[in-house]
């Protein structure tokens, strides 16, 4: 079961990345505005790699796809201090810019899917599961130079998650297997954007 998931995950991910790259390059080639950003704060969150690509749809709307991936496990061999915040999050959404895209305030709505395996940070209990939901966010984009912006944003998302709770990061004792609705913060960003 896990194996199949892994493979399908990999395929899905690569398809998404390919499509993103293709569309971005297509748009760049045809002269449209594209913004590629990466969130600095996320790197503080146990080194999550992330990328967001947004393209202009109209004067006040952009369409964006963002993803973040954290495969790292800290203190893997140390059973007592092992920490992980592994997740893969992909979201697609739109942003409304009241003045002009990629400058000033923006409000965004997106759908987001995330699979995660988090444990060992506050307690040895590890949670593993999928979450699917809708997020809203608000932010401000500050123009620094001709091609760079700094984005600030805050968001919150809610949805449904299926999860399994284990007693420790690397063992297999299942404590709980359930699904529930949830609300959580997301999109807390201070990110550097490169605009073409």
């Amino acid at each position: 079961m896990r194996e199949r998931r892994k493979i399908s995950k990999r395929i899905g991910l690569s398809i998404v990345m390919l499509m993103t790259i293709l569309s971005v390059s297509k748009q760049v080639a045809s002269g449209q505005i594209v913004g590629i950003s990466t969130n600095i704060l996320d790197y503080a969150k146990f080194v999550t790699m992330n990328l967001e690509v947004g393209t202009a749809v109209a004067r006040n709307w952009t369409f964006s796809i963002d993803g973040s991936y954290n495969p790292f496990v800290f203190n893997k061999n140390d059973a007592d201090n092992r920490m992980q915040f592994k997740h893969l999050t992909i979201g697609t959404g739109v942003k409304y810019w009241p003045f002009y895209l990629f400058s000033g305030f923006n409000f965004g709505v997106k759908t987001q899917w995330s699979e995660y395996n988090i444990g060992g940070i506050t307690s040895p209990q590890t949670v593993e599961g999928d979450a699917f939901g809708i997020a809203i966010s608000a932010g401000y984009s500050l123009i620094i130079s001709k091609h760079f912006n700094i984005d600030f944003s805050l968001g919150v998302w809610g949805g449904y998650t299926f999860y399994t709770r284990y007693s420790c990061p690397s063992c297999g004792d299942i404590l709980q297997r359930d699904s529930r609705w949830f609300i959580a913060p997301t999109d807390i960003k201070i990110s550097l954007t490169f605009n073409i």
Binding site: R59, Y100, S103
Partner: peptide
């Protein structure tokens, strides 16, 4: 300064100069 930086970007969607000024 800010206005000039904004104006130097490629203006794919047109926006009137007055609106920019006012912003």
């Amino acid at each position: 300064g800010l206005m000039e930086t904004f104006l130097s970007r490629k203006e794919y969607y047109s926006i009137s100069h007055d609106k920019v000024r006012e912003y």
